[in-house]
Computed example of a mutant assay.
Amino acid sequence: MKSFLLKRFGQMLLVLVIVSIFAFSITYFAPGDPLYMYTSPSVSSYKMTDEQLDQMRESLGLNGNIVERYISWASKILQGDWGLSISNHQSVLSQVLDRLPNTMGLMGAALLLAILVSVPLGLMAGYFKNKWVDNLISGFSYLAISLPAFWFGIMLIILFSLKLGWLPSSGMRTIGVNSAGDVIQHAILPVIVLSVNNTAVFLRYIRSNTIVQMEEDYVLTAISKGASKWHVLCRHIMKNCLLPIITMVGMNFGTLITGSFIVESVFGWPGLGTLCMDAINNRDYTMIMGITMFSCVMLLIGNFLADILYGVADPRIKQGKEKSHG
Rank of each mutant, 00 (worst) to 15 (best):
A227L: 14
F261H: 03
P270A: 11
M155Q: 07
K323G: 00
G181I: 02
S44C: 02
L112Y: 07
S195C: 05
N282S: 13
G259Y: 04
I291G: 08
L6M: 04
G153N: 05
P120L: 00
Q79S: 14
M56G: 00
P148K: 03
N209S: 09
V17T: 13
D284Q: 09
I86M: 11
L189A: 13
I257C: 03
Y70I: 09
L93V: 14
G176P: 13
K76G: 05
K47N: 12
K323A: 10
Y46G: 00
L309F: 08
S72W: 00
L220Q: 14
L123C: 03
F150T: 13
G181M: 06
I26W: 01
A30Q: 01
Y205L: 14
I291S: 05
V67Y: 14
C241D: 04
A109Y: 09
H186S: 12
P120Y: 02
E58M: 01
L113C: 05
A114Q: 04
G108C: 08
R207L: 02
L164S: 15
E322L: 12
F160K: 07
Q319G: 11
F4Q: 12
Q319P: 01
L78G: 10
S170M: 15
Y70W: 11
F29G: 07
M155W: 08
S324Q: 14
M289A: 04
I184E: 11
S169Y: 11
Q185Y: 15
Y38M: 05
G105K: 00
F140E: 01
G250S: 01
R173T: 15
S228Y: 12
K318C: 09
H231D: 12
Q213F: 11
Q11R: 02
F267E: 06
L156H: 11
E215S: 13
L97E: 07
E216K: 14
A227C: 08
L203H: 03
I157R: 02
N240V: 13
D98C: 00
S75L: 14
L106W: 08
L62P: 06
I188G: 12
S265F: 15
S20N: 09
L14G: 08
G80S: 11
N240T: 12
I158C: 10
S94P: 06
W82S: 02
A306P: 10
I262W: 01
L147Y: 09
W269M: 08
N281S: 12
R204V: 01
N63T: 07
F304Y: 11
D98F: 15
K321P: 05
L162C: 14
S141D: 01
T247Q: 06
L167M: 06
A149S: 13
M104T: 09
V183Q: 10
I280T: 07
Q52K: 07
R235D: 11
I257V: 15
L5A: 07
E58K: 08
F9A: 12
V92C: 03
I206H: 01
G268M: 09
N240Q: 12
T39E: 14
